[in-house]
């Protein structure tokens, strides 16, 4: 039973982690908390839905379509909106992402309607038995994709020019600029990759939670929590935070029955306790400053 809960917790945790990474990528290079992320993810996932059910295209196409949509959305948000508000303080930009989310929600409502839609699983078939643990095939796919993404990102930050420039920008914007890095362009890349990752996660989440206009916002909140738990500055931290959050959520089943309805409260309480002990999150950089 415990092993079962942990495994399925890890599966949802991987999805939180993927979304959390998208948030952190943007945050690290621009210091903007992208609160329109849930809507951007929803919008991209609806693109996949449309390609699948309206045009009956194969899954691979729908998948790529969603990711491309996320990628493009990221670029449009950064270039079209945020870059225009150059002098705005960070809190205002945070509001702007909320506004963009509302616009996307409105448009999605017109195009795809307001009711909840089931979203097909990519792979079907009976679950796999591993000892006494039952693993859904979908979860296996999630694990595989999450691992692949983690490796890809690791390789990107280690070996590609963009990855290295992103790291430099995250660490010290001014120094990066002095070294000839186009900080604005790096921000756009972060937005593109970040929102693209959300789209990817969205297509994997939608079969589980179904798809409507606002459901992805709840998933985003969990991604925010996972990111904070991990430290908000560290990608490995986001993975650890996401996985931990997924497992923690599942383990709340062991709580006394009377307290069971307060699941979210307890998850947040745990996060706050973790933060009280380690203010910089599990794997975050120390926030201690020197004068």
């Amino acid at each position: 039973m415990l092993a079962q809960l942990i495994v399925s917790g890890l599966a949802s945790g991987s999805l939180y982690a993927m979304m959390a990474i998208g948030l952190i990528l943007v945050y690290k290079t621009t210091h903007i908390l992208n609160f329109g992320y849930g809507d951007m993810t929803m919008f991209s996932t609806f693109i996949a839905y449309m390609l699948l059910t309206w045009y009956k295209l194969p899954f691979a196409v729908a998948f790529l379509g969603a990711i491309a949509c996320g990628f493009l959305l990221g670029i449009i948000v950064d270039r079209g909106f945020l870059k225009m508000a150059k002098n705005a303080p960070i809190t205002s930009l945070f509001i702007a992402t909320l506004g963009i989310g509302m616009i996307l929600e409105a448009v999605a409502g017109w195009v795809w309607g307001y009711d909840t839609k089931p979203f097909p699983y990519i792979i079907k078939g009976p679950p796999v038995l591993l000892g006494s643990v039952v693993i859904r095939r979908h979860d296996l796919l999630v694990f595989a994709i999450a691992a692949a993404i983690a490796l890809l990102l690791f390789a990107m930050f280690k070996f590609t020019d963009i990855g290295i420039a992103m790291r430099a920008t995250a660490q010290n914007k001014r120094a990066a600029r002095l070294m000839g890095i186009n900080v604005g362009q790096i921000a756009t890349w972060s937005w593109a990759i970040g929102v693209g990752l959300g789209a990817l996660a969205g297509v994997l989440i939608a079969p589980i939670v179904f798809l409507d206009l606002t459901r992805m916002i709840l998933v985003m909140i969990k991604a925010v929590a996972a990111a904070v738990l991990g430290g908000f500055t560290s990608l490995p931290g986001a993975i650890v935070g996401g996985l931990l959050l997924g497992v923690m959520e599942n383990l709340t089943i062991y709580m006394p029955a009377a307290l069971a309805p307060l699941k979210t409260t307890f998850v947040f309480l745990l996060i706050i306790i973790v933060l009280a002990i380690r203010p910089q999150g599990l794997l975050g950089e120390s926030v201690g400053r020197r004068v």
């Binding site: 909106f81 225009m84 508000a85 705005a88 205002s92 930009l93 509001i95 702007a96 909320l98 506004g99 963009i100 989310g101 509302m102 616009i103 996307l104 929600e105 409105a106 448009v107 409502g109 017109w110 307001y114």
Partner: peptide
């Protein structure tokens, strides 16, 4: 339906810009 939300969102973005 939706127009309200659209304009609301757009207003937010415009004010920020």
């Amino acid at each position: 339906r939706g127009l309200q939300q659209f304009i609301y969102g757009a207003a937010l973005v415009l004010v920020v810009i």
